[in-house]
């Protein structure tokens, strides 16, 4: 589904990603871990199409298409969803209007009829239950004045509405208390199927108790330096990253 080959990207001339290789198949869950500043969010942003990053080498194939060639909105329409580490507050844009515009533009791209107001609302109600998000929140401007946890919940709610094929969750668990974490991961798990895949970026093994990964990768200095199964996450939780850093730095 997603095939990243030798991906290099830099920002303002500084290389951040230095040769990422990753294969994700339908139905899989991949966890990406790694120390602060190792490039996890950069990878997520590059996949979503953020223009500040310059891809200097490598390729990304998504369902047979050259992902890097698509505008951010077309990537979303093709089925890539990024849950932002820091969702943006957008005053003056109502959550509902925003979502309806988004859902209908995605549907249009996929050759589907737009949802009318009634259908859209019932769809919304259903998905709201999934992430236990309060209706009141959605009558406000998009993310404006939302707490950290509310923003994260809203990301997953949007994901539920847009029905992506590949979801990239960038530290969706950070700042969530255990109840919120349970709710959010429940939502993610319910949306999982054999056809879609998930990449979770996290610092904490705790999330992986709820969203169980098939693979765990460690990103360090812009490269995936170690991959394993969920046991790797446990090991990292216990030992930290120093041993990996040493291994890598010694090899250089």
């Amino acid at each position: 589904m997603l095939s990243i080959k030798n991906l290099h990207a830099s920002i303002e001339g500084t290389p951040i990603l230095r040769g990422i290789n990753l294969e994700v198949k339908p139905g899989e869950v991949h966890a990406i871990m790694g120390p602060n500043g190792s490039g996890k969010s950069t990878l997520a942003s590059v996949l979503a199409g953020r223009e500040e990053y310059e891809v200097t080498d490598g390729s990304v194939d998504f369902l047979g298409k050259d992902l890097l060639d698509l505008a951010p909105e077309d990537r979303a329409r093709e089925g890539v969803f990024l849950a932002f580490q820091y969702p943006v507050e957008i005053p003056g844009v109502s959550s509902t209007n925003f979502l309806r515009t988004a859902v209908n533009q995605v549907r249009e791209y996929r050759g589907l009829e737009p949802l009318d107001a009634v259908k859209f609302l019932s769809e919304m109600k259903e998905k709201m239950k999934l992430v236990e998000i309060d209706q009141k929140l959605l009558s406000r401007a998009l993310n404006e004045g939302f707490s950290g946890g509310e923003k994260k919940r809203n990301e997953i709610f949007q994901m539920a509405m847009l029905e992506p094929k590949l979801s990239i969750l960038d530290e969706t668990d950070s700042g969530l208390d255990i109840d919120a974490l349970r709710v959010v991961s429940n939502g993610v798990n319910k949306l999982k199927s054999n056809e879609n895949a998930t990449i979770v970026v996290t610092h904490y093994q705790r999330l992986l108790d709820y969203i169980v990964p098939d693979y765990v990768h460690v990103l360090y200095k812009g490269r995936i330096v170690k991959s394993g199964t969920k046991e790797l996450a446990l090991e990292l939780e216990e030992k930290g990253y120093d041993w990996i850093k040493e291994e890598v730095d010694a090899a250089v």
Binding site: F84, V93, F98, Q105, V106
Partner: peptide
């Protein structure tokens, strides 16, 4: 970018933000 990342075309996203 946030709006685009949700599938909203760039022109429309700009319009939404400016109108807001």
């Amino acid at each position: 970018f946030y709006l685009q990342a949700r599938g909203i075309g760039k022109d429309q996203a700009r319009g939404l933000l400016l109108y807001a």
